[in-house]
Nucleic acid binder design. Structure first.
Lengths: 175, 175
DNA sequence: TCATGTCGTTCCGTAAACGGAACACCGGAG
DNA sequence: CTCCGGTGTTCCGTTTACGGAACGACATGA
């Protein structure tokens, strides 16, 4: 859970000093320094004050890498952003990154599961192994994942995309 | 930031007692009790131990509602999930809900901004006011948002969708 | 060279989050 | 009734995250 380095990176991106961010966020320099260096274990209040000042949601520094129960191969990393339910199904929304390299295979899921991918950057080749789809920035891919499917980046650029998994609610089962 | 009630709700869903969760998570009962009741301001370490034991990511209890700097009308609510940058643009990924009711208008954004919507449930009618698009579950809508545009739910069902805003990087500016 | 400003780290007293234990409460068994 | 095992809350001593101040390092300017 590398929140320290992430805070530091976000601060650096914005070109502001540790002292300045501490003052803006209303926290002590000692606090921010300790947090960035992983010496302290911040409270939620402290972390919120800082992320709010950086203009990012708490989730932006907390997308827990190892906690996320998901596909994780050599070239594909996915982070669970949100889970929600409605009458008919459960949805899981992921942020996904696919690095250039060999295609990442994913086995068949249960019947009725669909995958919805929106590509943000790079070019993604994904879908059923026997009929993969290709999409660039802004494009949308969808398939049923009851057959083996794969993900691969086309070209040298890392692919960023959102992935939505839809699991239909098993009829007659408990909820 | 109602993490206390959310933790309590998740615990209740699983039918386990405060004492049991505290023991499983390796935290004190006083800690968990104080956290659920909003009396204490937990450290990240404490919160992580508990959410991990509940089997949910930290983000599941932290999707900060009031922090999200966004469109918020009578019928449309959006929560910022993630912000990221690449060489050419800044992206903002939102989770969006549109309730039945009058269409929500959004003014024109700067030139070059595009909106990408993936509908999860319900039927959404959205896009430029003079040429809106319609999409149901699993469908994908896209338009350039340099003209006024609108969002509306078709029918009585609440619409859930993801919204991606892409802001091209102004040329000549450093990052 | 010396003064001044800002950088990030470290020191330190205070406030508060921590875990363990004691507590009041409740439902079931004897 | 008493005695248990369980609930969640409160008390309390310890640990630690907190902010302010002091610090050394570095850059700028007189």
């Amino acid at each position: 859970m590398d929140v320290g380095p992430r805070i530091r990176a976000l601060r650096m991106e914005r070109g502001i000093s540790l002292s300045a961010l501490a003052r803006l966020a209303g926290v002590g320099k000692a606090t921010l320094s300790g947090l960035e260096n992983g010496v302290r274990n911040p409270t939620l209040e402290t972390l919120y004050a800082i992320t709010a000042q950086l203009g990012v949601p708490l989730t932006a520094v907390l997308s827990a890498p190892e906690q996320t129960p998901t596909v994780r191969g050599a070239a594909v990393g996915a982070t669970l952003l949100e889970v929600f339910h409605d009458r008919d199904a459960t949805y899981e929304l992921y942020r996904m990154r696919v690095s250039p390299g060999p295609a990442q295979l994913s086995p068949a899921h249960q019947t009725g599961v669909t995958e919805h991918v929106t590509v943000f950057s790079g070019v993604l080749r994904a879908g059923p192994v026997d009929a993969p789809l290709t999409g660039g920035p802004g494009e949308y891919l969808r398939w049923t994942s009851d057959v083996p499917h794969s993900y691969a980046a086309v070209g040298e650029e890392q692919v960023r995309a959102s992935l939505l998994l839809r699991y239909p609610r098993p009829s007659g089962k408990d909820g």
